[in-house]
């Protein structure tokens, strides 16, 4: 039954799994950090935000986030290949793919963060201000901690999305399980390998979701 798992295929499968993990991890971490900052900026510069700055909000929300989000990921990824090459010196491999993955998911994650922050009641922000907090203290000590359950859920959703996107990235030189499924499963017509890659990805997604939910429960005291 496991005849198809020749030593070569086994090795390729391990490498591919690692590459997928690598892409997800790199782009996940960078997206979480940059996207969190962008999400906070989207929220606080908004009309009813803590520090409304109209022009900045228009640039961030209307121009950067909306335009990036309206380009289909497959196209965005190809379009960003030269940019990835400029940054990491090559357009091939998981690190190069991570550049496009990250740029593609930051706006998505930032929107989710913005929504989570919007759910923090204005009364809490007022309370923090009345107690003499600076705006920075309101953001760091009140808004972000209060929105943490939502932010954790947003990270989970984003990482799951990244696992899917990373398969697509594999097709344009990123490697990973997507590449594996395509090369072995599709072009060499080896359905067992196709199914195995799918199973590995399903397990990855399940694990991420489980861990994410567990963390969200832990930080949620509402």
């Amino acid at each position: 039954m496991f005849d198809f798992l020749t030593p070569t295929v086994q090795k390729a499968m391990l490498t591919a799994t690692w590459e997928t993990l690598e892409m997800t991890l790199i782009s996940g971490v960078v997206t979480a950090v940059v996207g969190l900052v962008l999400g906070i900026l989207l929220h606080v510069t908004g009309k009813d935000g803590l520090a409304p700055i109209r022009w900045l909000n228009v640039v961030l929300s209307g121009v950067i986030v909306n335009i990036t989000r309206s380009i289909p990921f497959a196209i965005l990824m190809v379009a960003l290949i030269p940019f990835a090459a400029l940054i990491v010196g090559t357009s091939l491999g998981p690190v190069a793919a991570s550049v496009s993955l990250t740029l593609g998911t930051i706006p998505f994650f930032a929107r989710l963060v913005e929504t989570a922050l919007r759910d923090v009641s204005s009364g809490k922000v007022d309370a923090a201000l009345v107690m003499g907090s600076t705006k920075m203290q309101v953001i760091r000590k009140v808004m972000v901690p209060e929105a943490m359950p939502g932010i954790v859920a947003a990270i989970t959703t984003t990482v799951v999305t990244l696992i899917g996107y990373s398969a697509m990235a594999g097709l344009v030189g990123g490697g990973g399980l997507g590449r594996m499924a395509y090369n072995y499963g599709y072009t060499r017509y080896n359905p067992e390998i196709m199914i195995l890659t799918i199973i590995i990805m399903v397990i990855m997604v399940q694990l991420v979701q489980m861990i994410g939910d567990a963390i969200a429960r832990k930080v949620d005291h509402r």
């Binding site: 009364g123 809490k124 007022d126 309370a127 923090a128 003499g132 009140v142 901690p145």
Partner: peptide
């Protein structure tokens, strides 16, 4: 901000921080 510390405020819905 300093002056605000001279006024303690109590809200209708307490407005406590749920994460604390």
């Amino acid at each position: 901000r300093d002056a605000r510390r001279r006024i303690g405020m109590v809200f209708q819905h307490a407005n406590l921080f749920d994460s604390r």
